[in-house]
Each structure stands twice: as structure tokens, then as C-alpha cells.
Design a protein around this nucleic acid. Structure first.
Lengths: 134, 134
DNA sequence: CTAAACCTTTCAGCACAATGGAAGGTCAAG
DNA sequence: CTTGACCTTCCATTGTGCTGAAAGGTTTAG
């Protein structure tokens, strides 16, 4: 299976596949006499896994760590579970932060609605974003 | 006012101030005979504005565009309002996406809780993240 | 035999907002 | 006059996941 076939099978580009190899996510396959990469069937499974894990929000580094465990013969279950929990925490922290940001932006929008452009002098730069010095 | 004083007054580092100048956020000030930057009082106001705008989640590029309007003699109110609304939309889109990601992660966590490590063969890589082929 | 489609490598760059470090110049106090 | 704090410039790097381009080699169909 050449890289173009694998790309078609996985829905990735050949560039991305080479990038994944370089990033340690996909083992370097044997080469044809002409120097072309010649992939075994499992390569497609591996790429499917990488994309699934990415969809779950894992980084390539984390995915690499899971694959490394698997490749060393261990079941990565415990590691995967820990990563999922960690990302769950992360996601919740980011949501809390976005909630704060949204509240701040809503406050600014309200302020913008009642701001008189004429009241905004050059010294203030912008009275919506910064309270004018009193 | 030299850069160190301005840094102390604004709570930024001298490096960041030079970076802001280079990024077009702070006009290049006159220099002393020794080549040191010599800032007018307004520089502090300007930096305060930059930080406030950043706190609101605006990017440096957006802040630059507000300052450019102001420097060209126009009141940037309408532009600022548009930017705020746009960031509000953005924030809400990202929150919706995080909500989806969180739901996916929760599903995976539930699955991880009931997964038997022994059921996870080498071929599957990880049955928590990818359903085994049937 | 030729042209197209495919493959190879390597280096560079994107966005984002700084930060680190090197190598050297200037200024005020003691 | 020296020490040390402060200043100057420029280049490189951080993290993330690719993508672009250049310059060339291989394979397959007609």
C-alpha cells in the first residue's frame, strides 16, 4: 500500500501522513525498490486511532504516549483513562474562563450601547474599554 | 521618562514595551543623546489601554487597528463595538464547542470505567477511544 | 518514448504574544 | 575611574498541527 492509497483510505493527505511518521505516531514503513513507502494494512487502523484520539481532544504528544505504551506491549487503558480525566478537568477550567470572558464582553457591549462617541476624546483613546480618568 | 520607568509605571517589562513598539502599538519615542527611549506621559495611558483591551480578549492586531483609527483622528467607537460583538460571538461558539468536547470526554470516561483491559488487544490499540472492529 | 501522476527530501512558514540570550553602549554614584 | 544598573540591537525560541514550495526521482498508461 503506497502513501497515496493510505491517504485515500484514511482521509488524510500524504503530507500529513509523512508528518505523523516524523512525529513518531506512525512507524516508518519498509520501502519499495524505488524508495516509496510501502504500508501494511494496520497502518490504516493506526491512523483511524490517531484521528479518534484527536477528536477526543488529545494532543499528538499524548497520542504518541498511548501508542508508545501499546507498542511496548502494555495495555494503555489506565493511561488513557488518566488522560481523559485530565482533559475533562481542562475543558471545565476553560469553560469557566470563557464564561468569565463572556460576562466581561457583555458588560462592554452594554457600555458601548450607551456611549456617546463625542465623549471619547483623544486622551482617553476609548471610553468603552477604559474608564476615563476622573 | 525612560523605558524602565514606563515599565514600572505600567507593570510591563521593558522587553514587552519594546515588543509593543515593534508591533506598532506604541509609537517610537524620541531618543536621548545616548540613544535611550524618552517617553512622554501619554505613553502610560496608551499601555493601560492596550492591557485593558487585552483583558477584554482583543488580539494585539485588533488593538492596533483601534489605535490606528484613534491616531488618524477618528473616534473608534463603532469599530470597538463591532470587535466586542464579534468576540462575543466567538466566545459563544467556542463555548458550544467545548460543551460538545466535554460531552464526548464524559462518554469516553464512562466507557473507560467499564472497559476490561484484557479485552483490549494489540490490533485495536485502545477500545476506549475506538470501537473494536466487529 | 513521453507525459502525467505519483513519489522523495529538505527547509520554511503560519498564528499568537511574548521571552531568552548574546554582545555591547551609557549613565550615576562612590 | 570603576562598578553595576540600565539601556541598545538582533536573532532565535516557545507550543500546536500542520502546509507550502522547491527540486528532483519513479511508475504507469497510452
Amino acid at each position: 500500500m503506497r502513501i497515496g492509497d493510505l491517504a485515500a483510505a484514511s482521509g488524510l493527505t500524504t503530507r500529513t501522513i509523512r508528518f505523523y511518521e516524523q512525529a513518531g505516531l506512525l512507524p516508518a514503513p519498509p520501502r519499495t525498490p524505488g524508495g516509496y513507502r510501502d504500508y501494511p494494512e494496520q497502518a490504516a487502523t493506526r491512523l483511524t486511532f490517531v484521528r479518534s484520539a484527536q477528536d477526543a481532544g488529545l494532543t499528538l504528544a499524548e497520542i504518541r504516549s498511548i501508542l508508545a505504551l501499546r507498542d511496548s506491549g502494555q495495555a494503555p487503558c489506565a493511561h488513557v483513562t488518566a488522560l481523559i480525566d485530565q482533559h475533562l478537568d481542562d475543558t471545565e477550567r476553560r469553560m469557566a474562563e470563557l464564561t468569565r470572558t463572556r460576562a466581561a464582553l457583555r458588560g462592554l457591549a452594554r457600555r458601548a450601547a450607551v456611549t456617546d462617541p463625542a465623549a471619547c476624546t483623544e486622551d482617553d483613546i476609548c471610553t468603552i474599554l477604559v474608564s476615563p480618568r476622573t
